[in-house]
C-alpha cells in the first residue's frame, strides 16, 4: 500500500439514537479494500488536543465508508461536530480483519455489547451472501443503546437483545441470551466485540463448549500501524498488537480479563 493517509469528505454525520452516531465519508479507494473487523484511524482536529488519532471499526462499506460511534470523549465529541463537506484525515484500512467462516460452518453467532456492535453489521453484509444462519446477541445498557437492529434484520439476522434495565428484550446480560441459540461445536462460529468482561464470558462459554470463534479487541492506540507497540495485549503466543496483529484474534488464543 503506497498511501495509507488520506483526506476524505464527510458525506453525513447523524445521531442515530440517544447514544450513537454514524459518520459516513466518501472514500472509493477504502471501499474496495476494507474487510470486516478492520478499522480506520481518524484525526479529529488539526491541533494537538486531543493528541492521538481515534480508531473506529468500519461499520459499513457500501456506497460510502461508515463508522458508528458514541460521542463521549474529547475526540469523539469533536467528531460529532463534523458536518457534510468537512475534510476528514483518515489512516486506513488498518488491522487484521475477521477470518470468514470455513465452508463447513452453518451458523454464525455474533455477540456484541454496546458500541461493539459496529463491526458486526459490515460482517453481516458480507455473510448474508452465503447460506448461513445468522444470529446477533446484543447487550446494551438501556433502550437508548439499542441500535441498529433493523439493519441486521434486513440482512436476515435473527436478533436477540438484553438490556441492563430490561427496557428492551431480556433484562440482564448478553450471556443470559446464550440459551436462545442452539450452539453446535462442529458448525457454529462466534464473533464477539464489546467490553472485555463480556468478551471474557463469551470466550469462557466458547471454550467450554468447544466452539471456534474470534474476538475484535480494543486497546488505547497511538500509531495504529504496529510501530509504537503501545496497544499490545497478551495472547497464548505472547504480546500482540491490537492495531496490526488484531483487532481480530482467535478466541482460543487471546487472553481476556
Amino acid at each position: 500500500m503506497d498511501q495509507i493517509q488520506n483526506t476524505y469528505k464527510v458525506i453525513s454525520n447523524e445521531k442515530l439514537c440517544q447514544q450513537f452516531w454514524c459518520l459516513s465519508f466518501d472514500a472509493p479507494d477504502l471501499l474496495k479494500e476494507v474487510k470486516p473487523g478492520q478499522f480506520v484511524h481518524i484525526r479529529s482536529n488539526e491541533g494537538l488536543e486531543p493528541f492521538f488519532r481515534r480508531p473506529f471499526s468500519v461499520y459499513r462499506a457500501q456506497r460510502y465508508v461508515e463508522i458508528f460511534y458514541e460521542a463521549k470523549g474529547p475526540g469523539t465529541r469533536l467528531l460529532a461536530a463534523k458536518t457534510k463537506g468537512d475534510p476528514l484525515d483518515v489512516l486506513g484500512p488498518l488491522g487484521t480483519p475477521f477470518v470468514l467462516p470455513s465452508l463447513d460452518i452453518k451458523q454464525v453467532v455474533m455477540i456484541a455489547g454496546g458500541i461493539g456492535v459496529a463491526p458486526m453489521l459490515i460482517l453481516s453484509d458480507i455473510l448474508k451472501k452465503r447460506k448461513l444462519d445468522l444470529v446477533l446477541l446484543y447487550g446494551g445498557r438501556t433502550r437508548a443503546h439499542v441500535y441498529p437492529m433493523k439493519e441486521f434484520k434486513d440482512n436476515g439476522v435473527k436478533v436477540h437483545i438484553a438490556t441492563d434495565d430490561g427496557s428492551v428484550g431480556v433484562k440482564g446480560r448478553v450471556s443470559d441470551l446464550f440459551e436462545k441459540v442452539k450452539f453446535n461445536s462442529h458448525d457454529t462460529f462466534i464473533y464477539t466485540c464489546g467490553p472485555n468482561p463480556m468478551m471474557k464470558a463469551v470466550q469462557d462459554f466458547a471454550l467450554k463448549n468447544n466452539i471456534k470463534g474470534q474476538a475484535a479487541c480494543e486497546e488505547i492506540m497511538a500509531c495504529g500501524l504496529g510501530a509504537c507497540l503501545g496497544c499490545s495485549i497478551l495472547t497464548k503466543h505472547g504480546y500482540k498488537t491490537v492495531c496490526h496483529d488484531g483487532p481480530a484474534f482467535d478466541l482460543d488464543d487471546v487472553i481476556l480479563h
Binding site: 494537538l48 488536543e49 486497546e219 488505547i220 497511538a222 507497540l229 499490545s232 495485549i233 497478551l234 504480546y239
Partner: peptide
C-alpha cells in the same frame, strides 16, 4: 516488553 496498559494520552503528548 511491559504489561499493558503501555500508553496514555496526555495534554499535547503521551
Amino acid at each position: 516488553g511491559n504489561p499493558p496498559v503501555r500508553i496514555w494520552e496526555t495534554p499535547s503528548g503521551m
